[in-house]
Write a protein that binds this DNA or RNA. Structure first.
Lengths: 126, 126, 126, 126
DNA sequence: GTGGTCTAGACCACA
DNA sequence: GTGGTCTAGACCACG
């Protein structure tokens, strides 16, 4: 369940995972993240690795750390919404650019997506 | 013009770039790629890096090396079409997964894409 | 209003703040400081933190604790004046050193300061 | 010569030191910094600590790192000049605020600085 | 208990 | 050779 793909830094994979949990609303503004030690045990990596992860998230702005108290999901919901929107646009843009780079027309892209979504309709988590 | 993003191996970035040129039809089946030396100069990287790139492309199957003659785009157009289709599905799948991971519904994904495409309608390279 | 910068110990930030109030004359010799409990509530920090702050100020000499009565601004105005002068020289010295470390000449330092002061002439609190 | 003050993280002290060398022009745009290993030996700290330092500098923008080649002073002189100017204003502003917080008038600040500079006239490095 | 820093030592991918 | 990542283990300041 908590395993990592090799070749991409663990601390970044973990950061991404947590970030998605935040953006998806599974971790809400103000929520306390597990302490560095605890998280390290949970995901079975070194404390230092978790440290880097939390610092990365801090840099991104989705997380704040209060000395001696712990690390918390930022209560600045504005930032979270901005980030959600920004990431959305970014992913769409990258996707389209990638497809165009391979020579697909906008029509093909749109159709391809629709077919894919119809195909997997029941799979999205409810 | 020929710059590389850091943090992702240069040789893979170059491989991807060439691969896209092939899939897009800018390099046609049977075309000769620049020699390792020449390519290294053109894109300003180490020859070792280009070597790895060509080996990578060979592994993928879009390129063939003929000893003493050089490196050529494969004339097996079947492979190219398969690959195009495979990459297309892959990119779509990754895109959708990424969006769902951030909590977007299929509706939002489809709408987001349509809006983006309408917005950039004239921008596709002619 | 009462927020703290991270990465610098809260108890020192608080000590500095109170010290400045004393040196500025907002808290006068003999004035009673709020009790540890009260101060802790006012600035929303742990009582331990306020304790350390008061101990720090005692060490500096701007504050005296009388058992059972509370903590008071020292009535030894001599000390306050000495401290004012000492801190002044210290800050100037640090400032100049920092500027020189970045390669600014004395001329640039003096000019920079004058321009800044002219620019903010009306802003000093009345 | 290369010792560190305690209580302030070594990696930040080192970053500051290098940054000042860059801003002062002792390390010029395009210059290669010592490799992580070499620097670690020179200043007698662990490689990891130097890593953090270089990363910090990267974040600030005064330094760029090219995979497999090393870490270099950015050739973007625009950024360096901006930073110099920004830091200058920042330091002046902090200085003035600190002095005003202690109750000194603009006159006192200016005079204090002039006296200090006259006093140390010969000390600035030529 | 919490985050932060540091060390020693190891391994990897890249140029 | 270069930077990057990771671990194990330690110590510290802060709340």
């Amino acid at each position: 369940m908590t395993e990592f793909h090799s070749s991409h830094p663990i601390y970044l994979q973990l950061a991404e995972r947590i970030n998605e949990q935040i953006l998806r609303g599974e971790r809400k503004p103000g929520d306390k993240l597990p302490s560095v030690r605890e998280m390290a045990i949970q995901v079975k990596v070194n404390q230092n690795t978790v440290q880097r992860t939390y610092r990365e998230l801090e840099g991104i702005g989705t997380v704040e750390t209060r000395r001696g108290q712990g690390t918390f999901v930022t209560e600045n919901t504005g930032i979270l919404n901005q980030m959600r929107e920004r990431l959305k646009q970014e992913k769409i843009s990258q996707f389209v650019q990638g497809m165009q780079a391979m020579g697909f027309s906008n029509q093909e892209i749109e159709n391809g997506l629709q077919i894919f979504l119809r195909h997997n309709e029941g799979d999205a988590k409810p």
